[in-house]
């Protein structure tokens, strides 16, 4: 009979737990801001540093979902988020021009770099970006692309075109991963290939390998490699549910001196990942 009692207690505990879980899940709708952002800001840990400060300063809770820039813009277009933090200026301009977003403000930049194996079989070290792209084509060197319509992917496509080349979509040496930046770098390393990455993620990658990563920076500093991050408020005239006032406060805060200072101070391996440049 004791076993029977235990069974009863267990059943009750399960039932109560179930009800509790369901009830609490429904009643969690506090006043908060939702942001769609890119994996690079999230994976580097920048947002984990920055956002608690925002909440501390303004009392506004912020939730963010990290996806590629393409999907982030789509979420904004569908009114599913209040604010965006993305890095694909041409696409952003189109987004604003179409009336999907307002108040686009540049907040920070870092730069893209071309990385590859230290042996550099394609021989791109020290060359310009356009020359490097042509080397890949010529040597049929393994190039690993995000292939996911993210900001980095859009940038890479732009680089092929700027070099007067077609995107080698079906080439055997062109690998499209459809995954995030860090996964893509790892795949490039496994295949002894090259890839384009933002410097923030690369530093994070170096940190994971205790400062001695298998892939090295081979091309950097070219003006076309600039990686500009911006915030955009989703247009409240189109999307009635958007918390425009909170979103504006967020834009104001992140372009403000305190936040800009904190972005500059965010470092990994002693290196600055993002350079604030809000005007």
């Amino acid at each position: 009979m004791r076993a029977l009692q235990m069974k009863r207690i267990l059943l009750w505990a399960m039932a109560i737990g179930l009800v509790w879980a369901v009830v609490t899940s429904v009643s969690s709708a506090a006043d908060s801001l939702t942001m769609a952002t890119t994996t690079s800001t999230d994976n580097t840990g920048l947002l984990d540093e920055l956002m608690p400060e925002f909440t501390k300063d303004t009392g506004i809770d912020i939730k963010w979902t990290a996806t590629g820039t393409g999907k982030a813009l789509k979420l904004g277009e569908n009114c599913d988020v209040d604010v965006l933090m993305v890095h694909a200026p041409p696409a952003e301009k189109k987004f604003v021009d179409a009336g999907f977003g307002v108040n686009r403000r540049e907040i920070m930049y870092n730069d893209f770099v071309l990385i590859g194996p230290p042996g550099d079989p394609a021989g791109i070290s020290g060359k310009t970006v356009a020359e490097a792209m042509m080397q890949f084509e010529k040597k049929k060197a393994v190039f690993v692309s995000r292939g996911d319509n993210s900001g980095t992917n859009k940038k890479e496509i732009g680089l092929w075109k700027a070099a007067g080349l077609e995107v080698p979509d079906r080439a055997e040496w062109y690998v499209q991963t459809g995954q995030g930046m860090l996964s893509t770098i790892r795949i490039a390393a496994e295949r002894d290939g090259y890839t384009l990455t933002d410097r923030g993620t690369y530093i994070k990658y170096s940190a994971d390998h205790k400062g001695n990563p298998p892939l090295k920076v081979l091309v950097e500093g070219d003006a076309v490699l600039l990686n500009q991050y911006s915030v955009i408020v989703v247009n409240p005239d189109r999307c009635k549910n958007v918390k425009a006032d909170l979103a504006e406060k967020f834009v104001e805060w992140i372009t403000g001196d305190r936040a800009q200072q904190q972005i500059a101070e965010f470092r990994l391996l002693g290196q600055e990942l993002f350079h604030p440049n809000a005007k």
């Binding site: 969690s28 939702t34 994996t39 994976n43 984990d48 939730k63 963010w64 979902t65 990290a66 996806t67 995954q179 995030g180 860090l182 996964s183 790892r186 994070k204 990658y205 994971d208």
Partner: peptide, 23 residues
């Protein structure tokens, strides 16, 4: 869910995230 930290991050989306981050 959007894998939002403290809100909709489940164990499986956390695994996906950590894997993506190389952890």
């Amino acid at each position: 869910g959007g894998n939002i930290k403290w809100h909709t991050r489940t164990i499986t989306t956390a695994i996906a995230l950590e894997t993506g981050k190389g952890q």
